[in-house]
Design a protein around this nucleic acid. Structure first.
Lengths: 192, 192
DNA sequence: AACTACCTGAGACAAAAGTCACAAAATACG
DNA sequence: CGTATTTTGTGACTTTTGTCTCAGGTAGTT
């Protein structure tokens, strides 16, 4: 990875955990860097997920095929990690597909290699745990959106808390992420 | 804790991770057992959460106060763990209240003591990580309920996948957990 | 510039869910 | 056992959202 990316990632992670520069180095030593094009799929529904992915550039879209229609469950932007944990953990077929929303640069971390790293480096296992904590907190907040707010409130939440989604994802794609029809979201946007 | 509980917990955890009986012993050595009455609050919105809680008997209800109305975000039954991770992790005020739904027996694990255990026992840190994985997967499934299903579908999901909630929680309490009005859930139940 | 594919906005109508009010039923508790 | 309190069911009505359809817009490609 580039020194610049390393620095950015370091800043990102340092807020998350106490990992050292040498820890970041060890971590990325087992990573596989890859360029993917817009629309390219890195995990397909039905396949078994074998790695965790870090996004350096571009973004990934995670979705479930429900009766032939895509339902978006997540968007992963620069300096964030994603995977299908259920599949990764138990080696069962993934219920989601992960696809590049733009041409992207990613790093793939193989599960087995990560587990080996965990064994020899408490620092990296700690990092793994804290990453999970972060993901869980984000997921809880996302769930609460549906319990606390109406569709309008959910959209406003994204506007103030996840501006990247509003700015970079099309209205149609956002609608399933918020659990509403495309037309409803269009009306919400019209209102302001 | 009783030998019986220890055995049950062990069975529960063994499915989750490879923790040994000695690991379970080490873990519960730092736990504080407590009886709480129905309605008793163990974490109040605004307080800083300092521990993880394991439920041996009874159940806990986690909710957010929204304009004076309780919105239930979680129910924790026997042999499961709960906490407010956002508050626990960053020592910031909790946005949820955790309350006993029935008279309950719980074990409280102090955060600092757990972190110390993590340092000396890779087995327990591994357990902590796998517990987080489990919680994250459950949370993801819960979020997807709102994206994939209508209120009726969500209720049916609980019937087949979380029967404990249907059996032990009142309809009014379930309604906010599913993000619908009480009357709507009553009509769903009527339909079957 | 023309072609294509995709995305957005808008209207009309149907369906679903929310709200309010009150009665009936179940539960808790003295 | 009876009373008080909480919970649930129901109807009438309003508001919101979904669905279907089509027109116009935008972006990328050749």
């Amino acid at each position: 990875m580039t020194d610049n990316t390393k620095t950015l990632l370091y800043k990102k992670i340092i807020g998350l955990t106490e990992i050292t520069q040498s820890g970041v180095d060890k971590l990325f030593a087992v990573a596989c860097k890859r360029q993917i094009f817009k629309g390219e799929i890195i995990l397909k529904q039905g396949q078994i997920c074998r790695n965790i992915v870090f996004v350096e550039k571009g973004y990934l879209r995670t979705f479930i095929d429900k009766d032939g229609v895509d339902i978006n469950t997540d968007f992963t932007f620069e300096d964030n990690f994603t995977t299908n944990l259920k599949s990764l953990r138990s080696s069962i077929p993934s219920d989601t597909t992960i696809q590049a929303g733009e041409t992207a640069t990613i790093y793939e971390f193989d599960k087995e290699e990560l587990l080996n790293l965990y064994k020899v480096s408490p620092e990296i296992e700690s990092f793994g745990r804290k990453l999970l904590e972060q993901l869980l907190i984000t997921q809880e907040e996302h769930t609460n959106l549906f319990k606390l707010f109406t569709p309008t409130g959910r959209y406003h939440f994204l506007q103030t808390n996840k501006p990247q989604i509003i700015q970079r994802i099309s209205l149609s794609q956002i609608s399933s992420y918020l659990g509403v029809a495309r037309e409803t979201l269009s009306r919400i946007r019209k209102k302001g």
